[in-house]
């Protein structure tokens, strides 16, 4: 597709590794034990899908807004993005100097619209969490304390500095880069991080706020990094645009 050619063209000028990597990779789904499991089962099936190798860059997003005027800075409606939408761009139609940084200051609506334009969608929380468990060699490295500490140290870095270009970390098991260390990423069901106490235990007031009997409890409270992602997502609204929040797209496999 056209946009990918643009990306690859830009990538060639800055990073050959980038050009060498495929733009998206196939993820072979599996049953996995989510951080917040379903009430009646420990495992949830993540079907096969494809996912962008890197977070979406400013230059890719610029190509999108050029053909989708509704999503240009200055044109977007308040319902769909707050006032800091794309505010880090030097101009509404320029990403000079930040071409290969992940796009940030994008709302959930904008991220969805972008992915939709690529015939894709935002990944679900389950999909994102499933692939983020991998380190370079293992599908699931979360049992490894060193991996957890490694991820945690990414999240502990003070923010505020210039965001690095994409392709900062080597590919994980699936061939995905930069899941950690660059930016937070939107997921389709970001507003599903509803994590309640068990209301059946007594007449607590929470029952009036959340549908009764719907309890969620973390499977492993030691996964602090995962905990932090859920907390982060639950602080968001769909119009929010944050300096450190970007996204990448996922794609359903063509039915065979």
């Amino acid at each position: 597709m056209r946009y990918w050619l643009i990306i690859i063209g830009l990538a060639l000028s800055s990073s050959t590794a980038l050009a060498a990597a495929p733009e998206r990779v196939k993820i072979t789904g599996d049953n996995y034990a989510p951080f917040y499991p379903d009430k009646d089962k420990d495992q949830t099936l993540v079907p096969d899908f494809e996912m962008d190798t890197f977070p979406v860059t400013n230059s890719s997003f610029l190509a999108f807004v050029k053909t989708h005027a509704k999503w240009q800075r200055g044109s977007v409606k308040a319902l769909f993005a707050d006032e800091s939408y794309l505010e880090n761009w030097p101009a509404a139609d320029s990403v000079a100097g930040i071409e290969n940084q992940p796009v940030t200051h994008v709302s959930w609506f904008a991220a969805r619209a972008y992915c939709s334009a690529q015939n894709g969608r935002l990944p679900t929380e389950h999909e994102w969490e499933f692939v983020s468990r991998a380190d370079e060699t293992r599908v699931d490295a979360t049992g490894d304390l060193a991996f957890n500490q490694h991820v945690l140290s990414f999240y502990s870095k003070p923010g505020g500095g210039q965001i690095d270009n994409i392709n900062q970390t080597s590919a994980n098991y699936w061939g995905l880069h930069d899941l950690y260390g660059l930016v937070w990423e939107w997921v389709e069901d970001f507003n599903s991080s509803i994590i309640s106490s068990d209301n059946r235990q007594g007449g607590d007031k929470q029952e009036s706020k959340f549908c009764g009997g719907a309890a969620l409890n973390a499977a492993n409270t030691r996964e602090y990094a995962t905990f932090m992602r859920f907390a982060f997502r639950s602080s968001l609204k769909s119009s929010y645009t944050l300096h450190n929040l970007g996204f990448r797209c996922a794609y359903d496999l063509k039915s065979e």
Binding site: I195, S197, Q206, A218, A231
Partner: peptide, 11 residues
């Protein structure tokens, strides 16, 4: 409290 987070609430 627009975006209450139940687990947070609880803790």
């Amino acid at each position: 409290s627009l975006l209450s987070v139940p687990l947070l609430l609880a803790v």
